[in-house]
Design a binder for these strands. Structure first.
Lengths: 219, 219, 219, 219
DNA sequence: GATGAATGAGTATTCATTCAT
DNA sequence: CATGAATGAATACTCATTCAT
């Protein structure tokens, strides 16, 4: 959560402060500007990738949308692929952070509550997820990253399950994590269609199924 | 070429066998030849899109892989986008046909059997699905097609539910269809990772959850 | 000689005929146009490489100077390096053809005449040589081509020496060829400086030295 | 770096030793440090130009190889072209110095010895010559420098001839210098191909021819 | 109609040079 | 003065689409 949020926080406010700030100097101190620029570039990249997909997204547009010259973009991300990797890594980190918070409180949650919490993880990073999916689907060589991301998520979910029910055999937890991850993705997909006819009930249905699944296995 | 065959087989033969093929000569009637060529082109397009993604796929390679001249490709599909649309439509049609067969026998199935049948629909068209997803993810303007496809699937699933339980209120069936579609997508995703650690158990888990969900709602 | 000349012949006249020809059709027959275009492209490439060197020469300028769209240039020469290779190969072929004519009449020549003929070979392809040198010097990976070219020239010169004096041991002929090639290059260099102060006498001096060298060795 | 040392040694030490170096402290006086840095930069530039050619050589790499910040490079050489010019001037100076030593002992040498000494001049600065040629070939606007260099060499050779045979008419010496320079370049070219088949004999052949040429003209 | 050569707009990336610190 | 981050013009190459044959 932290790094993801920081990106969003770092990107938007900066533009705002640049316009409304009291400082008359036309340019921010270099170091800080570098940090802000990276954040802005990542944010812009995320947006453009999400909108157009990896291939159709152009480095020029990403730079332009970040208000940065193309040379600056390449100073920080020497390749389109590197930029994509950075974005994906950032998303992965954010996801893992969210899972960590769920794990922290897992022991105190009922199966139904745990199910709800889990299904809420993916939908909470809507924009980032859109970008991440655009990257994953468009780049064959990125399948490795994708696998690492999935593996990390599964590990995180399994850890949550064991935090909730320490007696659960690790193998069983791993298998359940795979199932739950799919349901979490389903919840995310529903979240991406806000004006879906029966979205609310469908999400409730998924939560219900997950809850039953957890109750069944965790006792 | 081999991998496309299933696509071609699924799409073309139906039409072909419907007309019959009396001519055995080396030069098929133009109509028939046109049909075969279209099928080959679509199959090639599906394979190339699935392998490289929409943007990286080139019209030249698609034509070459179908053994057709590029001009011929443009004769039938005046645009890359049109070709993608046709491919997606073909996939949608195939999916709907599968759902129709499930609907036909829905009344005779137990909830568990119905769950298993439903979750088996998406994984059965692996290659086509890969192509379809490549298209959907890479082309923002294709979201509309995607929405239509999903809507069609939901309608089909709802129809199955009502075939199984005629007393089910249409609204309820619609909402359940949304939930079930997500679980079906989960099953498909699992099918795409053949060497996944606990894939077998995870799929069973999904089927179990779906089965419970159906039993709960359909009695 | 033949292929080199044919390039020059093919490139210039075509432009002329295109402008002054009786045909009103705006475009020549495709096949022939292809041939002419390749020749024009090679000629333009030679000129631009000679003028600016390999790196500074831009594919865009080469195409423009040949009156061809950039896409056409890439249709025939998929890479700048390939274009350079083709140019070098053409130059090599032309040189070898010239040497062959010298070889044919070698037996009838006096040492002084042979020296003069040899020293006249390189200066006769001034423009092509300029391009070839620009390529050789700028591209480390082209050193191989360069070596092949030199080896070919040495073989050709040695063959001439043996044609003149069949009794000459092959090893001796080979060594002499190396020496003579350097003197031929010197003559070419002199030819590149037309307004050089004592160029005429210097060339005579080189010929004299070569003549003595030949007389000494061939009797 | 090692290969450049000879360059640095040839250029810098002369000036350095002329001033003396009394300060042993870790921070040399600015002047001296500047001199050392310039020498290092020139050496690095020579190496990089020789390796990659003028265009492919980047100012950044040159600075890095000299262990200097890019800003420092630009402090001394405000332009890549200026840097190239300086390098060429340094090479010219080194060549002229070598010729001067030959001139000093010219009167005491036999024609054969003089020929050998002259043909040894260019091969002795192999690395520097490589860099110089890379510059000359890649930059059309550098032809002027190249001409000046050649003119200087010819003057130096003519001076040697007159030192050897004071009675030689200046015009005749000038013409002979042109011829001899070409043979010297041939010797250098042979020196650049160390594993050439008959290189040794070929070099001997060149020396023989030059020796005959000198004997003929100088008596 | 069928074919495939020709076209040129569009893209990622590099690097000389500047200038704020 | 010294530094190295920032800039943006420039370049090789691709590919959807057209149209002469």
């Amino acid at each position: 959560m932290s790094s993801q949020k920081s990106t969003a926080d770092a990107a938007a406010p900066i533009a705002a402060s640049a316009e409304g700030a009291p400082t008359a100097g036309p340019k921010m101190p270099t170091r800080e500007r570098g940090r802000a620029r990276v954040a802005a570039l990542l944010a812009a990249a995320g947006a453009v990738f999400a909108e157009k997909g990896y291939d159709a997204a152009t480095m020029t547009e990403i730079a332009a949308r970040a208000g940065a010259p193309i040379g600056s973009l390449y100073q920080f991300f020497p390749t389109k692929a590197v930029l994509a990797d950075a974005l994906l890594a950032q998303y992965a980190e954010a996801l893992m952070a969210l899972l960590a918070t769920v794990e922290a409180r897992a022991a105190t949650l009922s199966p139904a509550e745990l199910a709800a919490d889990l299904l809420a993880v993916l939908p909470s990073l809507k924009v980032e997820r859109a970008a991440a999916f655009a990257l994953i689907d468009a780049r064959p060589d990125m399948v490795a990253q994708q696998g690492a991301l999935r593996a990390g998520l599964r590990r995180g979910i399994a850890a949550i399950l064991r935090a909730k029910s320490p007696a659960l055999p690790p193998e069983r937890a791993a298998a359940m994590a795979v199932t739950l991850l799919q349901m979490m993705k389903g919840a995310a997909a529903l979240g991406d269609e806000p004006d879906l006819a029966h979205g609310r009930e469908a999400l409730a249905g998924l939560e219900h199924a997950a809850s039953l699944f957890l109750k069944d296995a965790l006792g």
